[in-house]
Design a protein around this nucleic acid. Structure first.
Length: 103
DNA sequence: ACCGTGACGATAG
DNA sequence: GCTATCGCCACGG
């Protein structure tokens, strides 16, 4: 299955994102100690089981957009979860200057 | 080993 | 704001 030891740290970072806030793939990668691992974070999340308890929906791309095909099941779920937490998604876009997770 | 494929990102126009 | 490139990196065929 997931033999990649890096997934472990990625999961931990994602799990630490506060509710009502979001983080970008690149940000998660850096906090996980993987400077150019944005794609790896995306890959990691894509492998998560549908019933994962991880707040994967709090991860968006550097443009503040959901990186899933619009209209897809995942897109709808992510959008719903975010709005439920109070994250404003205007015209499919999130203001990172407001909702981005800051340490 | 080679090549195409992504839930990416930075930059240029 | 948008598209087009290019760099990046793990995986699978």
């Amino acid at each position: 299955m997931n033999n990649n030891p890096q997934y472990e740290v990625i999961w931990q970072i994602v799990a630490a994102i506060p509710q009502g806030k979001v983080a970008t793939y690149g940000q998660v990668a850096e906090l996980a100690g993987l400077p150019r691992g944005a794609r790896m974070v995306g890959r990691c999340l894509s492998q998560l089981p549908r019933d994962s308890k991880l707040p994967w929906f709090r991860v968006v791309n550097a443009s503040g957009r959901i990186s899933l095909p619009e209209g897809s099941e995942g897109y709808v779920k992510q959008l719903g979860c975010l709005q439920e937490e109070g994250v404003a998604v205007v015209n499919g876009k999130i203001r990172l200057s407001v909702f981005r997770w800051q340490l």
